[in-house]
Amino acid sequence: KSEEHWTCVVCTLINKPSSKACDACLTSRP
């Protein structure tokens, strides 16, 4: 599942699959 985009639970930004934290608010990926 690491190839899928993911949505930040805090700010709802859709992040790149390679991101380990949100690009906007830096919250860790769930």
Rank of each mutant, 00 (worst) to 15 (best):
C11N: 07
L26Y: 07
L13N: 15
P17E: 13
V10P: 02
H5N: 14
S19D: 12
T12M: 10
A21M: 10
E4Y: 02
H5Y: 12
I14T: 14
A24L: 03
C8N: 02
K1G: 01
P30Y: 02
L13F: 09
A21P: 02
S18N: 14
K16Y: 03
T27Q: 08
S28H: 02
S18E: 14
K20E: 13
N15P: 02
R29W: 06
D23T: 15
H5I: 06
L26I: 08
C25V: 00
T12C: 06
T12E: 14
K20S: 07
K20M: 12
C11R: 03
V10M: 11
I14R: 09
P17A: 09
D23A: 13
T7G: 06
V9L: 13
L26P: 05
L13G: 15
C25Q: 01
C8Q: 03
D23P: 11
T27G: 08
L13V: 14
V9Y: 02
V9E: 14
S2Y: 00
C25S: 00
V9D: 07
L13Y: 15
C11I: 00
T7P: 04
S18F: 13
C11Q: 01
S28G: 12
T7E: 07
E4T: 11
V9A: 15
C22G: 01
C8Y: 00
L13S: 11
K16V: 06
A24Y: 12
C25P: 01
S2G: 07
L26N: 10
A21Y: 04
K1R: 01
W6S: 04
C11Y: 00
S28N: 03
A24V: 04
P30I: 05
C25L: 00
I14W: 06
K20T: 11
C22A: 01
L26C: 11
H5D: 05
D23S: 11
I14K: 14
P17F: 02
K16T: 10
C8V: 00
L26E: 13
C22W: 00
A24S: 12
P17K: 11
V10N: 08
D23Y: 12
S19F: 06
E4A: 05
K16A: 06
A24P: 00
K16P: 13
C11W: 00
E3F: 12
V9R: 10
K16H: 04
R29Q: 12
T12V: 03
R29E: 06
A24T: 06
L13C: 13
C8A: 01
A21C: 04
H5W: 00
R29V: 08
P30S: 15
S28C: 12
C11A: 04
P17N: 12
E3Q: 08
L26S: 14
V10I: 02
E3T: 10
N15I: 00
L13A: 15
P30A: 15
E3W: 05
C22P: 02
V9W: 08
K16Q: 05
C25Y: 00
C11S: 05
K20N: 08
W6M: 02
S19V: 10
S28D: 14
L13K: 12
W6D: 03
K20C: 08
L13P: 09
S19A: 13
I14H: 11
L13T: 15
S18Y: 04
S2F: 13
L13E: 15
H5T: 11
P17W: 08
T27W: 03
T12R: 15
K20G: 09
T27V: 04
C22Q: 01
E3N: 03
V10E: 07
C22I: 01
H5Q: 08
V9I: 01
T7S: 08
S18R: 10
D23E: 11
C25N: 02
T12N: 15
K20R: 08
C22N: 03
W6Q: 09
A21S: 09
S2A: 09
K16C: 03
R29Y: 04
A24Q: 15
K1Q: 00
W6F: 06
S19H: 06
V10Q: 04
V9C: 12
S19E: 08
N15F: 01
H5L: 06
T12D: 07
C22F: 03
I14M: 14
S2R: 08
D23M: 10
S19L: 10
K1S: 00
